[in-house]
Amino acid sequence: MEVRQLRYFASVAREGSFGRAAVRLNVAQPALSRQIKKLEEELGVELFVRHPHGITMTAAARNLAPRAEHILEEIDGFRHALEQPDAVEKRCLRIGVSPGTAELLAYPLSQLIQRRHPQLTCEFVSMLMPARADLLREGQMALSVMNRPRSLNGLRILPLLREPLCLIHRPDDTRLDPVSIDIADLAGIALILGGDRDSGVRSIIEEAFSSVGLRLTVAAVANTAGTCKALVREGVGPTIHVAAMARAELERGELCAVPIRGLYSVRVIALSEEAEMTPDLRLMIDTVRDCFADLVHSGRWLRAEMIGCPAPIEA
C-alpha cells in the first residue's frame, strides 16, 4: 500500500466524487481511478460502488476513511516537523464566523491546523455577517465562513456546502408533518427569526415567503442562533435554521428539525477581492474545506453536502 493511494482514497471519500477529487489532487481522473482499483485489489474489498449518478462508499470505505485521514495527518506532520527549525514563530490568521458556527467549528479546525500546519494559528472573530464582511473588505480578516451574502460587492466567494433549512421546534409541537413540509405549510405560524436582515438565512426565509404570497409572522427576533434555540425551548415558537446549529439539542431530544422542501442555504468561504493569495492563506482555505468535509462525511455537521471544487486561485 502506497501513501499516494491512501491520499487518493481519502480525497475521493471527502469529495464524494472521482472527478472532484481528481481536480483537487491535480491528477488525471483515469490515473486516480487506477490507483483506487489497485488499493481495492490489495485490500481485497470494494471501497466505492460506481453507478450512473456518482459513487457510494461501502462499509469498508467508511471504516477506512477516518483511519486513512489520521495516518495522512501523522505523515504530513512528521514531514513538516523535519522541515522546520526547532523554534518556529507562529503566524496568525483571523477567521470570521458566526457565534453559532464558532461553537461547532472552532475546536476541530484548531486541532486540524495544529496537526497539519504548526507554523500557523488562527484567531476566531465571532460576529454577525455584515460586520465580518466589512472587516474582510477592509483587509482586517483573512477569510470568513458565512452563508452566501446578498451583496457580493468587494468579496470573492468559494462555495463550501449546501444545507437544507429546517423548521426547528419543540417535540410537543405537533402542528406540522414531522418528516417534511412546504413553505406554504407555515402560513400563520409565528416564527423566531434572526435579527440580521442581510444574513443568508434571514433573506432566504423572507424571499421564500414572498415568492408564495405569504405574510411572514414573527414571534420574536434574536441576533444569535443560541438565543433563537433558547426561545424555541421556552415555547415562544419555532425557528428556521440549518440542523447543524441545533445538533446538541437534536441529539438530546430537546428539539426536532423538519426539512422545508426546496429551501437551502449555501455556506461559503468569503475573501476580500483585494486579498493577496499568500501561501498561508492558501493553506488555511484548504484546511477549512477539509475540516468541513470531515464534519459533513462523519455526520457531525448534520444534513449537509459539500459542493463545488476548489478552483485554481491566482496568486
Rank of each mutant, 00 (worst) to 15 (best):
V221S: 12
R162N: 02
R267Q: 08
F209N: 05
D177W: 13
V232E: 00
C228N: 05
E206V: 14
D185P: 07
A244P: 04
L161I: 11
E234V: 11
L167E: 00
D182W: 04
S203I: 03
V258A: 06
S211C: 09
H169W: 07
P238W: 00
V201L: 11
P171V: 05
C166S: 09
R261L: 10
G235Y: 09
G253M: 14
K229S: 13
T217F: 09
G200H: 03
L263M: 15
A187I: 00
E234H: 09
I189Q: 04
L231S: 08
C256Y: 12
G200A: 13
V232Q: 00
G194F: 00
V201M: 04
D185V: 08
A244T: 10
G237T: 15
T224N: 03
D177T: 15
I168W: 03
R175C: 03
D182E: 14
A225K: 15
A244N: 07
G262Q: 09
S199K: 00
D182P: 04
D196A: 14
I189V: 15
A190R: 12
R261I: 15
V179Y: 15
G213C: 08
T217C: 12
I260A: 03
V266R: 00
N223M: 07
D177G: 08
A248Q: 10
E206Y: 11
I168P: 01
G194I: 00
L160S: 06
G188A: 01
A184T: 09
P178C: 04
G226V: 06
D198V: 14
T217Q: 11
I269P: 03
L193W: 01
I240V: 10
A246M: 01
S211M: 06
G226F: 06
G195W: 09
A230W: 05
L216E: 10
L167F: 04
S180G: 11
P259H: 09
M245Q: 13
C228D: 13
G237W: 01
D177Y: 09
A225P: 09
T217S: 05
A244E: 01
L193H: 02
I204Q: 08
I260D: 02
A220P: 11
G253R: 13
I260L: 07
E249V: 12
E251F: 09
A225F: 09
E207R: 12
I189W: 01
G195R: 06
R175L: 07
I269L: 03
D182K: 08
P178V: 10
A248K: 15
T217A: 13
R261W: 12
I192L: 02
I189D: 02
